[in-house]
Design a binder for these strands. Structure first.
Length: 649
RNA sequence: GCCAGUGUAGCUCAGAGGUAGAGCAGCUGAUUUGUAAUCAGCUGGUCGGGGGUUCGACUCCCUCCACUGGCUCCA
C-alpha cells in the first residue's frame, strides 16, 4: 500500500501501482471526468501512469494553469494528426502549449498554407477528437526512435533526438499519429470540443534566421463551445483598446506614407498628453539632481566609431548623411549616450562633482526592420527620456537604487501595477555580440543583481537580452493583447567610459574611470504612451488627459454662462472646452463620452438661475449598461473645483 | 528581412471583367433642445503606386509601397 497526500493535507491509502485517474474515481466520478493531468510530487504526469511510492498528489483540471497547458499541448498533437491525415508527408517540428492555446511548427514542403485552409483542418480535428483516441505513452530506445523517424523521413524530429539521452525518450500516440514527446497528456481526445485555428506564420526552425522557415499554425481549444466564444469576445474587446485605434479616434497621433513608415506624427491632443508626461518627469528629475542637456539629432560618424555603434549597427542603420565636403559623414543619432559621454569629457572632472546626472528627452532614429514596425510601440524615430549618470564605483549601488526607485515611482504614478522587472543578461555561451572584457561584464551583472536584491525588487532573469555594451534591468509591461514590451530600462555600463576614455580626478589626485548608468523610466515617449493608452483604454489619468472637462450648454442661450464657467475653471488650471454646437444635450454627451473626457458640466436654465453646474462623470465606455451612470447632480463651481483638486491631489 | 493576410470617400465597411455604393464625419439650411446619435439637402473616391493581359481592369497576373498577425531582430 502507498500513502497519497492530497493538497488539503488529507492522506489516503491506495494499492501500489494505482493510477491518478483511479484515485480520482475513488473520490468522485465528477472529478474523474474533469481531471486532465496529475501533479505527483510536484511533477506533472499523465493520469494513467501508475504511482508506486508514497506521494503527494494534485489532480489538475481545466481550472489550473498546468491543466490548461496539458490540454493545449494534447490539442497540438491533435492538430498534427489532422495535418498528417490531410497533407501526407508533412514534417513536424515542435508543438508546444503557449499562454493562450498552442502552435505546431510544420514543414509542408511546397504547400503554402493560408487561413483559407483552416476550416478544413478544424473540421478534421473535431472529427478525430470525437474518436476519443487515447494518448498512449511509450518509452522507446534512442535507436528505435531514430529508426522510426528515419523511416518517416522527419529530419526535424531526428535533430531533436540528437539532443536527447537514451532511456529518456518517450513517444505518445493518439489515433494514427505518433510523436516524439516528453508529455504529459490528457487521457484522450474526447474533451476537446471547441477548436479554433487562429493564425499562420512563418517561424524559423529553432528560432534561427539562417535555417529553414517552417509554417507555424496557432490554435486554441476549449472543453466547451461557450468558452471559445468568450475567448473570442475577449480578444474583440482587447482590440477596442488597441492604441492604434484609439490613437486615431482620439486624434493623438498619425502616420503618413509620405513622411515614412515608423515615423509617428504627434497631433495636438497627443502632444498635450505627451508634454504633460515630459513635464512630470522633468520636474521629478530636477528634484533628484539631474541636469537637463540638449544635443543635436545628427553627429559625425567618428562619434559612433568610438562608441562601437558604427561597427555594430552601421550597416543596418539609416545610411550616413554626406556633406558637400568630401569625406565628411554624419549619422542620424541612434542613441544619446555617446553625446552625453562627450559632455562628460569636455573638461576635467573632479570626484567632487560626481555623481553627475545628465538628462535629455533625446530623439533617436533606428532603422527597425520593416516587418517589426507596430503603431507607437515599435517605430523608427522616437524620443527617449534618457539620462546618463556618471559616478565612482563606490557610488554605483546607491545611484542604481535611486534610479530603480525613480522608475518604480513613475510607473506607479502612471497607474502601472503589473510590470515585471527583468534582469537582461548576456547570451549564456555566445559572447561574440558584446564589447568589453569578461571582468567588466561580470562587475556590471553583479552590480545589478546585488542592488535589486538589496531593495527587494522582485526580478526575473532573461539571457540573451542584454545590450551589446552591458546588462540591463528592464521593466516589462503587457499590451492589450498580452504582448510584452520593454518600457523603463536601467543599464550599468563600464564599457563606454572606457571607449571614451572618461576620467575623474580622485581624492588621491589620480585619474580614475567613472562608471556609467543609462536609464529611461518611460523608455520612450512613443512606446510608453502606446502601452499606457491600452492600459487605460484611452481614459487617461485626470491630470494628464488632454481635455479634463467639457462644458455642455443645453442650448445656445447658455453659451455665455458656459464660457464663464470655463474661464473660472481655467483660473484653477482646469482645462476643457465648451460645446456650442446647436445639438441636443444627448448628442453632446455622446460625443464627449467618445472623446473620453472625464467630466461633463451641463448648464441650462436651472443652472444659470442658481449659479451652479450639473456634473456628469465619464461613463464606462460605449456599453449599454454603463449609460446614465455618471450623473453626479448639481454643484457650485467652487464645490466642483474642490472635488476635482482632491482627485488630482 | 522572412511567412501568411489586407489595402474601395476623413472613418467603418458593402460591391464587382462593362467604368463605384451605404452609414457616420464634413458643408448648407431648418431645429433651441435636460444626461450616449434632431431632420432635410449637398459635397466628397485617378478603388494604395507602377507595369502587364484584355475591345474594356477597381475586379485577373506581375512588381513596389503601406498596414495586420507571427518569426527573426531590437543600441
Amino acid at each position: 500500500m502507498i500513502n497519497i497526500t492530497f493538497p488539503d493535507g488529507n492522506i489516503r491509502q491506495y494499492e501500489s501501482g494505482t493510477s491518478a485517474l483511479d484515485i480520482a474515481k475513488s473520490i468522485s466520478m465528477g472529478l474523474a471526468n474533469k481531471v486532465l493531468v496529475a501533479k505527483v510530487n510536484g511533477e506533472v504526469r499523465d493520469l494513467m501512469r501508475p504511482i508506486d511510492t508514497d506521494a503527494s498528489l494534485e489532480l489538475l483540471t481545466w481550472d489550473s494553469e498546468d491543466g490548461k497547458k496539458t490540454y493545449w499541448h494534447s490539442s497540438a498533437h491533435l492538430l498534427a494528426e489532422a495535418l498528417e491525415a490531410l497533407y501526407p508527408g508533412t514534417k513536424f517540428g515542435i508543438g508546444p502549449a503557449i499562454d493562450a492555446g498552442f502552435y505546431y511548427d510544420v514543414d509542408m514542403g511546397e504547400k503554402s498554407l493560408s487561413t483559407n485552409d483552416f476550416a478544413k483542418i478544424e473540421e478534421k480535428m473535431l472529427e478525430l477528437a470525437r474518436k476519443k483516441s487515447q494518448y498512449t505513452r511509450k518509452e522507446v530506445s534512442k535507436a528505435d526512435a531514430i529508426q522510426y523517424f528515419t523511416e518517416k523521413g522527419d529530419e526535424y524530429k531526428l535533430e531533436l533526438l540528437e539532443g536527447l539521452n537514451d532511456g529518456d525518450i518517450t513517444f505518445y500516440t493518439q489515433g494514427d499519429f505518433t510523436d516524439l514527446c516528453r508529455g504529459p497528456h490528457i487521457p484522450n481526445t474526447e474533451g476537446i470540443k471547441a477548436i479554433k485555428l487562429m493564425k499562420v506564420a512563418g517561424a524559423y526552425w529553432r528560432g534561427d534566421e539562417s535555417r529553414k522557415q517552417m509554417t507555424r499554425i496557432y490554435g486554441i481549444t476549449f472543453p466547451k463551445a461557450q468558452d471559445l466564444k468568450d475567448h473570442l469576445t475577449m480578444i474583440e474587446e482587447a482590440l477596442k483598446r488597441d492604441h492604434r485605434k484609439l490613437g486615431q479616434e482620439l486624434e493623438l497621433f498619425m502616420f503618413s506614407e509620405k513622411v515614412g513608415a515608423g515615423l509617428p506624427i504627434w497631433l495636438p491632443r497627443g502632444t498635450a498628453l505627451r508634454s504633460r508626461l515630459e513635464d512630470f518627469l522633468k520636474k521629478e528629475q530636477i528634484k533628484r539632481g539631474y541636469q537637463p542637456v540638449i544635443t543635436p539629432h545628427i553627429a559625425n560618424k567618428k562619434l559612433y566609431e568610438t562608441s562601437g555603434h558604427w561597427a555594430k549597427y552601421g550597416a543596418d542603420s539609416f545610411q550616413p548623411i554626406q556633406t558637400p565636403r568630401e569625406g565628411e559623414v554624419f549619422l542620424l543619432k541612434p542613441m544619446n549616450c555617446p553625446h552625453h559621454c562627450e559632455i562628460y569629457g569636455h573638461r576635467p572632472r573632479s570626484y567632487k562633482e560626481l555623481p553627475l546626472r545628465i538628462a535629455e528627452f533625446g530623439t533617436v532614429y533606428r532603422y527597425e526592420q520593416a516587418g517589426e514596425l507596430h503603431g507607437l510601440t515599435r517605430v523608427r524615430g522616437f524620443t527617449q527620456d534618457d539620462a546618463h549618470l556618471f559616478c565612482t564605483p563606490d557610488q554605483l549601488e546607491s545611484e542604481f537604487i535611486g534610479v530603480v526607485e525613480l522608475t518604480t515611482y513613475v510607473l506607479k504614478k502612471m497607474g502601472f501595477e503589473n510590470y515585471t522587472a527583468q534582469i537582461s543578461l548576456r547570451h549564456q555561451t555566445d559572447r561574440s555580440k558584446y564589447i568589453g572584457s569578461e571582468e567588466l561584464w561580470e562587475q556590471a551583472e553583479n552590480a545589478i543583481i546585488e542592488a535589486t536584491k538589496k531593495i527587494g525588487l522582485k526580478t526575473t532573469i532573461e539571457y540573451d537580452e542584454a545590450a551589446f555594451y552591458g546588462p540591463k534591468l528592464d521593466f516589462m509591461v503587457k499590451d492589450a493583447l498580452g504582448r510584452s514590451w520593454q518600457l523603463g530600462t536601467v543599464q550599468v555600463d563600464y564599457n563606454l567610459p572606457n571607449r571614451f576614455e572618461l576620467e575623474y580626478i580622485g581624492a588621491d589626485n589620480q585619474p580614475h574611470r567613472p562608471v556609467m548608468i543609462h536609464r529611461a523610466p518611460f523608455g520612450s515617449m512613443e512606446r510608453f504612451i502606446g502601452v499606457l493608452t491600452e492600459h487605460c483604454a484611452g481614459k487617461f489619468p485626470l491630470w494628464m488627459t488632454p481635455d479634463q472637462v467639457a462644458i455642455l450648454p443645453i442650448s445656445d442661450r447658455f453659451s455665455d454662462y458656459a464660457n464663464g464657467v470655463l474661464d473660472q475653471l481655467a483660473e484653477h488650471d482646469i482645462r476643457g472646452f465648451v460645446d456650442e454646437r446647436a445639438e441636443k444635450i444627448g448628442r453632446k454627451i455622446r460625443d464627449t463620452e467618445l472623446k473620453r473626457v472625464p467630466f461633463m458640466l451641463i448648464v441650462g436654465e436651472k443652472e444659470v438661475a442658481e449659479g451652479r453646474i450639473s456634473v456628469r462623470k465619464q461613463g464606462g465606455g460605449d456599453k449599454e449598461e454603463d449609460k446614465g451612470k455618471g450623473d453626479m447632480g448639481s454643484m457650485t463651481i467652487a464645490e466642483f473645483v474642490a472635488y476635482f483638486k482632491n482627485l488630482i491631489q
